[in-house]
Amino acid sequence: MDKKQKKFSKIYDNYVESIYRFISIKVSSQEIAEDLTSEVFLKTWKSFQQEDKIKNPRAYLYTTARHLVIDFYRTNKEMRTISIEDTKEIEDMTAPIEAQEKQDAALEIVKQGLNALKEDYQNVVVWRYVDGLSIGEIAKILGKSKGATRVLLHRAMEQLKEGAR
């Protein structure tokens, strides 16, 4: 493995899980999440070979992931995720009995609640509460100030809460 491959390998190891999770929350199947995640890293690897260095790998990967998910939904319009209203119906219909099933259903509902949010609201919530990024780190990815990022996160949480009622 040459120097470049070693460097990229480190980036891959550090971020593959979070990028997969980020995509997985936005799409409907594991297969699609895997395909899109591979594509994110393939694109990044190509850029890495040309530029040798990526200034902020996390921001670069998340931005690429966002664009790929948007492109995916653009070409597969019928696969758009369901709204909060639909999730309530699903909740009523499934009514799982076992505890694990209950937890899975709760996760599925929160995932669907997230998907009903605007794209930038969705991202900021996932980065903050799912991936555990700091406000500063999120601000860097978004290219916004910390204050603007806090406001965005607050509005996103308000909308998510509203949807969950």
Partner: peptide, 24 residues
């Protein structure tokens, strides 16, 4: 709390390794 639980979503180990080799 529910959002944090989504942090448990992880790709399969085998897929992670295969994809890495494929890309490199």
């Amino acid at each position: 709390a529910q959002l944090k639980a989504l942090g448990g979503v992880k790709p399969e180990r085998e897929w992670v390794e295969d994809t890495k080799s494929f890309i490199l």
